[in-house]
Design a protein around this nucleic acid. Structure first.
Lengths: 163, 163
DNA sequence: CGTGAAAGAAACGGTAA
DNA sequence: TTACCGTTTCTTTCACG
């Protein structure tokens, strides 16, 4: 598990453009960044191999897929031991309703971001997949009014990159 | 803002494959789904135009970009009025540290997922961008041990799709 | 929905700074 | 070592059956 990677202005420019639309062609990238298309290919390939780029993912609209309601579930797993939390996380990750799972500090051990069809679907999910389980001590449900994805993750400062 | 879209097994298969790797070629998609490449193009184009596919995004590793620490900030904004929360959300979204912002039901109005360089960077962020603001009544910080992205968002059931 | 052809992009070598 | 150029290979895209 490596540390930060040194990124020059060309890399940053490419990452910024690709975060907006990962299907941008190397030809178009080259025109906007001011280098040759093959250079873009070289840079992007390097960024993928170095792990900066984890993958190209499709962003879907859960509402269009019949999941118009999203919620966050705060879950306490007790006792909080590896033998219990390992299978718990794997089971939750495998649910089609789960979008993201966080393991957190603080009294609530896990936060699960879910997308469901409606209220009754959410109720079913909470009752059948969470509170019915022996290791789940408490579940707190919060509905999501709205969600905003933020801009590209840019490096903290134009200086000081530790290799 | 439309409701769900009717998706047949071919659409679902394509979405499942593309969620794993959005760069899969139509030729490879065709081979795995069992239709012609041009049919895959037709289907994917339709899915993009109907809004099921919101975009092709790059998944980056924040740790490799010098942001090895992630946290969730629960924020109370008081008074919770449009004149205050609108600018608040826009300001938070514009921070380079912000990954996602949720507007929630419950006592904590907003949940902000952030990625920072280290503890002192997190402290600076909380103090300078959150608690120093007049409209921010309370901030609760929880660190993220680990984060899991879950599988594709699949439609709820093989029946009952309302168009 | 499939076929086939044309336009276009990606990938790979070589080459020069 | 890194960027650029030109060619080959593959993909995308479109018109048509």
């Amino acid at each position: 598990m490596a540390e930060s990677v040194v990124l020059d202005p060309v890399d940053l420019h490419l990452l910024r453009l690709l975060q907006n639309d990962a299907r941008t062609t190397y030809r178009d990238l080259a025109a906007q960044v001011g280098v040759a298309p093959s250079t873009c290919l070289d840079r992007v390939t390097r960024l993928r191999r170095s792990g900066v780029i984890l993958g190209h993912r499709l962003e879907l609209d859960p509402a269009k897929l019949g999941r118009g309601l999203q919620a966050l579930l705060s879950v306490q797993v007790r006792p909080h031991r590896r033998e219990l939390v390992g299978p718990f996380v794997e089971r939750i990750r495998a649910l089609p309703e789960s979008l993201t799972v966080f393991h957190l500090t603080g009294p609530d051990d896990y936060l699960v971001h879910v997308a469901v069809a409606d209220m009754s679907d959410l109720q079913r999910l909470v009752l059948d997949e969470f509170t019915s389980q022996r290791e789940v001590a408490r579940v707190e449900t919060r509905l999501i009014f709205q969600r905003w994805d933020c801009g590209p993750v840019l490096p903290p400062s134009p200086s000081a990159q530790s290799g």
